[in-house]
Simulated assay, not measured.
Amino acid sequence: MSGQPVSPSLTVLVVDDDYRVASVHVGFVEAVPGFRVVGQAHSAADALRLACELKPDLVLMDIYLPDGDGLQVVRELLGEPSAPAVIVISAANDIATVRKAVQLGALHYLVKPFGFAQLAERLAAFRRANEDLGGFPEEATQHDIDRVFDLLRPATVGQQEELRRLAPTLQSVYDAVASGTGSLSANDVAAAVGISRTTAQRALTQLEQSDVLKLELRYGATGRPEHRYGVKRR
């Protein structure tokens, strides 16, 4: 049985004046399936140069740069014919700066410091919307357009809190599956991690829906097929 075609990874340019922070953000992006970091910039000049050379699909843009304002870089990038999408990442949380980022066309705005789950949720939303746009005909209906903008909306506060609470368990469950020699069931994971089967199943389902794990159905002689999970290789 042939598998589904694998979508190419979306490319990302990470811009941050702090080399250590940039490295952390690179690690976050690389941990999200379907994304690949193609460059790092630590100044406005480097951001413009690398964006021109690399043509990334997405730029994570810091505002406070040693040689200029990151929002001015955003203005220049989004004025290009083949402009990348931009997510602003900054310690600035004043309304004037946020308003300007929105007016310029930033996709999202994350206030530093932020956790992996917050960025991963927005990256996944961008990927879903991007894939949806790829399937449009020459002209989109209003329903098509509404669906794309719905996909781009960040999770509700309640959903974000649930992601943050679930994050350590997700990591433990993922590690258990990744370290196994084959696919694992919810019972296998529960025993390996030391959690209930119900919690293991919830985490496995979340990871499968996030495109991190793949679901395999193992059919026995009778009864329902067993759900087993393996790491989805990029």
Rank of each mutant, 00 (worst) to 15 (best):
R164D: 11
V86M: 13
K100N: 05
Q159N: 10
A125R: 13
L13F: 14
L60A: 14
G182N: 01
R234L: 01
E216W: 02
E53P: 09
A124S: 04
D17T: 03
D146H: 09
S185Y: 02
R202L: 06
A44R: 01
L110G: 09
V38G: 00
L107A: 11
E76N: 02
Y229M: 00
P81T: 06
V177P: 08
S183Y: 02
V21D: 10
V73S: 02
C52T: 09
H108Y: 12
V15K: 03
R122G: 11
V24W: 15
D132E: 11
E208F: 14
Q201T: 02
V21F: 09
S179E: 04
D175E: 06
Q4F: 03
V157M: 13
V86W: 09
E226K: 00
P81I: 03
V12T: 13
V189P: 10
K100G: 01
G134S: 07
A167W: 07
S90V: 13
V21P: 14
N93P: 11
G134C: 04
E76H: 11
R127T: 11
T97L: 12
Q159C: 08
L119F: 13
L184I: 14
A129K: 00
A191Q: 06
S183D: 08
S82N: 06
H42L: 12
V148N: 04
G158F: 02
V32C: 12
V26R: 15
V98M: 09
A91M: 10
D18R: 00
Y19C: 10
V14L: 12
E121R: 04
A117W: 07
L152K: 03
D144V: 13
Y109Q: 14
V74I: 14
E80S: 05
C52G: 13
G182E: 01
S196D: 02
G158A: 08
A41S: 08
V88Y: 09
V177W: 04
R165C: 02
G180R: 10
